[in-house]
Design a protein around this nucleic acid. Structure first.
Length: 284
DNA sequence: AAAATTTCCAACCGCGAGTCC
DNA sequence: GGGACTCGCGGTTGGAAATTT
């Protein structure tokens, strides 16, 4: 698997690892530990570069790696963490023991990202997709005249709505105002336990997606974005608590199918965004 | 049954940060 | 101070497997 070897300059092997190579690497690390990746392959008798050895170890051979499908709880944690951390896969992986950054990144790109796109959510900003919103203005004029039509919810936004969005006008349902603590896996480690400053720096100027309190709208100049983040967080929180938000009596478990998960999330969008956001505020 | 297409994910690439001399 | 080197991260690739036509 993976890309074909493209550089055999130093006579070093590339491409997929064999079981023999894996065994050599594991044996060496078990005896000597890992440290200097540059000299490790030579000492271990491997015709590989140190980088390749490090990747193989950290992404595949490490004994504490949990393999297999992601549970719904893990998936939900990834979405929440991504909404805060962005593409900081290593930071996300640090909060999901047993999962590697590469694994999470792959899972995001192959599963979660696509699902969010289908749901009309921009996987980068975690906000309603502007391209769909723009398209909706065309569709709305001819196809969707009634508030209960198939494109009556997020599709009724216009790109300019995002910049004119005023969080003070948002109305939250009871479950949204009460639902604060998201349901995360047992091994989930709160951000605060890791020290926010260490992740973001004191001024947070290097943060792609600034963190926001889960249930509190902010009123500063950057409130539009963070408010959407809050809304998203609430949506995600609701999806994590079927007993609290159970409009269709759907119980999602780790064995739920992709279709069940998507259907459940789609229902959240269809029936709840208009309730928590006063859509009239967005109409031109 | 075979070909075409899509999905999945291990592995590679390039860059930036940190460290050492 | 700055060049060389190492390490780690995020983005991307491409072959195998799965699915569809």
């Amino acid at each position: 698997m993976g890309r074909a070897p493209c550089c055999d300059k130093n006579g070093l092997k590339r491409g997929p690892w064999t079981t023999e190579e894996d065994q050599k690497l594991v044996d060496y690390i078990q005896k000597n530990g890992y440290g200097n990746w540059r000299t490790l392959p030579k000492n271990a008798g491997l015709q590989r570069c140190g980088k390749s050895c490090r990747l193989r170890w950290t992404n595949y051979l490490r004994p504490d790696i949990k393999r297999g499908r992601f549970s719904f709880e893990e998936e939900e944690a990834i979405i929440q963490l991504h909404s805060i951390l962005g593409n900081k896969w290593s930071a996300i992986a640090a909060r999901l023991p047993g999962r590697t950054d590469n694994e999470i990144k792959n899972y995001w790109n192959t599963h979660i990202r696509k699902r969010l796109l289908r749901m009309g959510i921009d996987p980068v900003t975690h906000m309603p997709r502007l391209d769909l919103l723009d398209l909706s203005t065309i569709l709305n004029s001819s196809l969707c005249k009634t508030p209960s039509g198939p494109l009556s919810n997020v599709e009724q936004f216009h790109p300019s709505d995002v910049t004119s969005f005023n969080p003070q006008n948002c109305q939250l349902n009871e479950w949204q105002t009460n639902q604060i603590v998201p349901s995360l896996p047992e091994h989930y480690v709160p951000l605060s336990d890791y020290g926010y400053d260490r992740v973001y720096g004191s001024d947070q100027s290097n943060v792609d997606h600034p963190p926001s309190e889960t249930s509190t709208f902010q009123s500063n100049g950057n409130s539009n974005f963070s408010s959407f983040q809050s809304v998203l967080s609430n949506i995600s929180s609701a999806s994590s608590s079927p007993t609290r938000f159970d409009s269709n009596s759907i119980k999602l478990t780790s064995s739920s199918t992709e279709e069940e998960k998507e259907s459940y999330c789609s229902n959240l969008l269809k029936f709840n965004i208009p309730d928590m956001l006063d859509v009239n505020q967005f109409m031109l």
